[in-house]
Amino acid sequence: MLKFIDTVGEAVAGIKDGSTVMIGGFGNAGQPFELIDALLDSGATDLTVVNNNAGQGDQGLALLIKEGRVRKMICSFPRQSDSWHFDAKYKAGEIELELVPQGNLAERIRAAGAGIGGFFTPTGYGTMLAEGKHTRLLDGKWQVFETPIHADVALIKALKADGKGNLVYRKTARNFGPIMAAAAKHTIVQVSEIVPTGALDPENVVTPGIYVNSIVKVA
């Protein structure tokens, strides 16, 4: 049942300790800062977080990591010039890291949403990120077996939602939003604008409302 919720605090209130939480965004583009801040305020802890990065600067996911709420990061690119909170936790041995090539990360998220039990991909073959994984020679290429990444909750950012929960995004802020919306059991979306049902051209809907559970407008 789709719900329109008044505040980000209420939107994230159901997230339990120990949850796996997908957070949209690539760098700051598409990162749902207000939902992340609300998750920080909620006190939920022992989280596994799936994001491309591991937080930048002193905001959003970086703060969640700083406050020790994240037990494990699943990401492709944790180390950046301003990822000091992750760097400190990692070096102190206080956060677990599952490093995944970016395209494998995306496809593993997509696979979860699409009900795929796993897939073979040439990406990563022969590298340390494929160590211990099942490999096969398929179509003349060595390929690595990768499994889906499921989540309890996805926090994503879109530009607009209509009354049915259909979403459109803006430019490269789309990034992980559509696939995370499909992969999580419960998808919470912050949008800049809620438009009446029928106001979005069905030909241009990017994420159909079936994948969306909660919508909150953020000014």
């Binding site: 492709s76 944790p78 490093l99 090539p101 395209g103 990406t123 073959y125």
Partner: peptide, 16 residues
């Protein structure tokens, strides 16, 4: 040993 590994899309680009 003390480097924080970060791969991004490098492996996907190299392979694809």
């Amino acid at each position: 040993p003390d480097a924080i590994p970060a791969v991004g899309g490098a492996m996907d680009l190299a392979t694809g």
